[in-house]
Design a protein around this nucleic acid. Structure first.
Lengths: 364, 364
DNA sequence: CTGAAAGCGCTTACAG
DNA sequence: CTGAAAGCGCTTACAG
């Protein structure tokens, strides 16, 4: 079987047809498993053999033009190199690949104005759907998708108006777990290191923080949080300094995100404060390596891979038109206790509460 | 300007032609900046206006079929979520996007047999080139690309036979820096925690380790390394145990990779050994967070983003046919000293050497 | 400067 | 079960 001499750059269906002495349409039918039954077995075999021999490979671009399908999906992330987004991308891409879709990544960076431009560019490629991990609470990209009838789902972040399906972690539960944990350790002066208000997780986690505090009768007339301007270690340090300046008596910080918590580590160190001896810190996300930082970070674990997979499934349904309903998949996070949290210094009265029944998935 | 009523799912060039009262070919010319000069200014304006009004967007699939160009590039990574590969992907995608190429990611996972299948699938999409971050020392995917005349470049890993251009870090220099560092601290019983031999970095770094040792007259008749079966923390721990079992007197471990070094941390901890008091450890890569682990890891920093960018540039040249030569871009890494290395316990005689002149980029 | 035609490689009603 | 034809949306020689 000399399968070597594949010289001609592209073998087309026409050439296979010639080689098998049939019409091109017959080749098309024989090569497509879905239509193979239309072709006599003997003929199909002949075609297959010829295709094999010539090293024929289907041109998906051409097929797509004809069928109106690109089998291409776009995914927008704010930063591919961010360890929160890479597993989401990975989970989504894997699921999508299993269904015959390739995924085009677009790293939109911090420049949110470029997003729309990038989406237009992707639309130009006839992508069949979009997974958005970038969305702000009120995002023009969503308008665009809606206008264009382009199937899209949000992941990790949700949109205010709920116009699109989304897969997110249960932020209320996450903050509840975090606050319950430090309260059970005996903390009462607890502050929230919040994320940007423009991002759904920043907004939601802040609200959930106050809600959880209230359940423990730890409400306050003055604000108990400082919002970072971005989800980065640097911004986390900056906001933590403000937190410390305003209220030096806090004994625990519940952060909206691990990176922010790491920034809090930096800020504490600057001031000669120790974690957890002086201040306990809880993160959110459980990014890789959080078990190896010093101290190992107590945090809320989110299954980012699962977020990606679910988002892909939702998008696939949407593309198939199976399920036109808007859904919100809410995945339950879990508390991972490590060494950044401990009882407070002055040993305040420990408050115990029955653990909240674990709320679970799929709402709305 | 009512730009709202964009009802019809797809506006084609034909519709724009009608609206502007010209022939479709004229629309095509007017819309393409490169051919606009062929059209009277007044007509071009009319066409642009009509296109704008109708919300026309070019169908790249159709254009691609006609021109034989997809402006699509594929990128194969062993694991998107690995913090070594995500910045490479990010750097490459950004550069590619700037030149009008979208990049399709394929996470090939550990299943190396699937790779070829995935590449075939990508070829089917008429990708114009491939960036391979996955390549083994002798890889069938390379054969495929060569056979098909598909432009491809390797990144982070190189191929034995050098049949394709590659962008890699200078492993010899990296190991030299690592070995020099621990030698200068006074270590003499130095072991190498090697990567898999089937991967170029595993192979090259091992050889470079012995080379560097020899320069310090630290050769040995018995092997000074143990190879991990994969670049993971778990495999790193396993190989470190073997290392420790064989030679309990080592005072420093130079690892082929940060993950491996982290595994070494685990193995030391199991045995009640401290780093750096009992054993110094040097990593390789300087992944994110390595400054936050305990102890902060001394390692060799590689600019992964730059690797990605360079690979993209090389591929772009290749696609354009500018530069048919095979090149090897070698980027210089640097030593980052943190706290996982210190003078050895028993204070061996310190050997000083003049620091090697920093060898730099771009070779043969 | 513009139009008419051909064709990229495929798929799919339409006949037979 | 198979062929012949049309057409997906674009671009580009070819005329004029």
């Amino acid at each position: 079987m000399p399968r070597s001499s594949t010289k001609s750059r592209t073998v087309t269906i026409k050439q296979v047809a010639e080689a098998a002495a049939v019409h091109p349409s017959t080749v098309s039918r024989a090569l497509n498993p879905a239509t193979r039954y239309l072709v006599a077995e003997e003929v199909a075999e002949r075609v297959l053999a010829a295709a094999q021999r010539l090293g024929y490979r289907r041109n998906l671009l051409a097929a797509g033009l004809r069928t109106g399908r690109s089998h291409l999906v776009g995914m927008l992330v704010p930063d591919i190199a961010n360890t929160v987004f890479s597993p989401i991308l990975s989970g989504a891409a894997e699921r999508l690949a299993a269904e015959g879709f390739s995924t085009v990544v677009a790293d939109v960076g911090r420049d949110s104005s470029r997003q729309l431009e990038i989406v237009r560019e992707l639309a130009t490629r006839q992508i069949e759907g979009l997974i958005l991990a970038t969305v702000q609470r009120d995002d023009p990209v969503v308008d665009f998708c809606l206008e264009q009838g382009l199937p899209a789902v949000l992941v990790n972040r949700a949109e205010e108006k709920r116009r699109l399906s989304a897969v997110v972690s249960d932020d209320a539960l996450g903050m509840q777990l975090a606050v319950d944990h430090v309260v059970e350790l005996g903390h009462r002066r607890i502050a929230h290191l919040a994320g940007p208000e423009t991002v759904s997780t920043g907004h939601l986690r802040r609200r959930a923080f106050y809600g959880a505090m209230e359940q423990h009768d730890l409400r306050s007339t003055e604000p108990l949080h400082e919002a970072a301007e971005g989800y980065s270690r640097e911004e986390g340090a900056i906001a933590t300094r403000r937190l410390l300046d305003r209220d030096p008596d806090i004994t625990a910080i519940v952060a909206a995100n691990d990176l922010l918590a790491l920034g809090a580590y930096d800020a504490l160190k600057e001031r000669g404060l120790r974690c957890p001896e002086d201040i306990s810190i809880v993160g959110h996300n459980d990014m890789p390596m959080m078990d190896l930082v010093t101290p190992p970070l107590t945090t809320i674990r989110i299954g980012h891979n699962a977020l990606g997979r679910e988002a892909a499934d939702l998008l696939l349904q949407r593309i198939r038109g199976d399920d036109p309903e808007i859904r919100n998949i809410v995945l339950a996070p879990s508390l991972v206790v490590r060494e950044s949290t401990a009882r407070p210094r002055q040993g305040q009265a420990k408050r115990t509460r029955s653990a909240k029944a674990t709320r679970t998935a799929v709402a709305g």
